[in-house]
Amino acid sequence: MNKIGVYFFIIILYLGLTRGVGPNTMHSIFIPSEAVFGNYFNESPPFTLVLVDAFSSGLFIKSYYHKYRLVGPFRPMDEVVVRVSSAFYQKNILNIGMSLFRRYDNNEENTVPLPPGTVFFLNKAYYGGWRWEDSGEKVWRFSRVYRFLNKQLGIQSFSPTYDFYKQLEHHQVSGKPYYGLRSEFGSNGRISQNNFPSFFTRKRDESSFFKSVLNKDFKLAVIKKRKLEKKQWKSFLLHE
């Protein structure tokens, strides 16, 4: 009984010490849902949080992480990794590249998943303006001084049209996620896939893991065989 007691004490000591000083728990905050974004991210407005990557780790007991990009016109861009709940992770699996939290100039906060840059498109303050394209379409563009935000937000040369803007407003009010007129944003969106490739590359690699291993070994075997055949052919020619 004494030995068993000592053994259990050692297990509890180990778990306690690991919890206290383990590298994963030392630096990452825990986000259970979108309701706590306002408490953890106290950046001055306008400010948006873009979901850049999502990852789960562990084999038997899983932990879930989100990587957010903090974007604002008057602050340096930053990326932060947080631990999230399983439910929140599953809820946002289709929202890679989307803005999950916005704080407007009037300190209003919104957590409906919308395309990144919404905090500027819907903002009454002057970060850009409407222009007429040669095609006759009306599009919104950042002012010259704020054009660096295109890259930070991961939208590159995308310019929202008036229809896009109207749909955006409607979805923000109704509280439903919006992925663009042609679903350009989100995990299934072309723009998000091009600008935030790490999540999609990892998913592709995971699904084709065995194929890639087989391919690698098979290719090596084929290369060796071809080299041997070349050698044999050369020696045949020499003898001829």
Partner: peptide
């Protein structure tokens, strides 16, 4: 040093 102590305790758990 912390990692060494943690691993030493882990060894005491795994050994039996």
């Amino acid at each position: 040093s912390l990692q060494i102590i943690l691993k030493a305790i882990l060894a005491a758990i795994v050994f039996p």
